[in-house]
Amino acid sequence: MLGLAGAGHCLGMCGGIAIALRPSSGASRALPIYYHLGRLVSYSALGGLLGGAAAAVDLAAWTLSLRFVAAVLLVAMGLSVLRIWSGISRLEQIGAIIWRWVAPATRPLIPPRYPLQSFLLGSVWGLMPCGLIYSALTWSAATAGSSINGALLMFLFGIGTLPAMLGATLAGQSIEAFFRHPRLRQFIGISLIFAGVWTAYIAASHAEHLLMPPKASGELSPLTLDAQSPPSNHHH
């Protein structure tokens, strides 16, 4: 659902790239499939890496903090889609610093002529600075509990982005115009904000449970102590 809701943002960031990757005359029609498969593998690898790292830190406060960060990022993404507040772009600017080092690796792969080139290009492009990806990664790391689950969640996120991204590759500007319709953009923005508020609500409702230290095996509650205490002998 997060991948679907972020369709407009995906097209805003990568729509031009997706359209440009339409296979040229004489090239295999399956090249876009390999490109987007590489993108999904890149997302899954990042999800597995962060999911495993988050699970290795066995602290309830750490998990809770990740969930609140994910909630804030989702709300920020929704506000950006609604064009109310573009603060999420600052986070993308930080990611752009890393992208400057990665981008040169894409030049020998453009335009892709073979399935392997297309797959590698999609894998590298999965590292593009994107607030939506950061939101999904933070949320998956907070909820996965393992590297396998983290990879699975990010793979499903990538599946959710396929209608917009693969549609832009195959259908061009017509699908881009559809996802940029003002009413659809409003629906997507509100959906992202709702997802963020709901994530924060779930995190807050479980905060006391997650942060409460477990009772020792021999520790008794006051009610138990009262039940075990012998009755007083009033008639003496």
Rank of each mutant, 00 (worst) to 15 (best):
L2F: 13
A5F: 15
L11W: 00
L11K: 01
L11Q: 00
C14D: 07
G15T: 11
G16H: 13
A20P: 02
A20Y: 00
L21R: 02
S28Y: 09
I33K: 02
R39H: 02
G48L: 14
L49R: 09
L50Y: 08
A54C: 06
A55D: 06
A56P: 09
A60D: 06
W62M: 02
T63C: 07
S65E: 08
L66K: 04
F68T: 01
G78Y: 15
L79I: 06
S80C: 10
S80T: 12
S86M: 10
S86F: 06
I88T: 12
L91V: 14
E92P: 15
Q93Y: 12
W99S: 00
W101A: 13
A105D: 03
R107W: 11
R113W: 10
R113Y: 08
F119H: 04
L120N: 05
M128R: 04
C130I: 05
L132R: 10
L132K: 11
I133Y: 12
S135P: 06
L137K: 04
S140F: 12
A141F: 08
A141C: 07
A142L: 09
L153E: 13
M154D: 07
L156K: 03
F157C: 12
F157P: 07
G158W: 03
G160A: 10
T161P: 01
L162I: 15
L162T: 15
P163W: 00
L166K: 08
L170Q: 08
A177T: 11
A177I: 11
Q186M: 07
F187V: 15
S191C: 14
S191I: 15
F194A: 14
T199S: 13
A204G: 09
L210M: 12
L210K: 10
L211A: 09
L211T: 10
L211E: 10
M212F: 06
M212G: 05
L220R: 14
Q228H: 15
H235A: 04
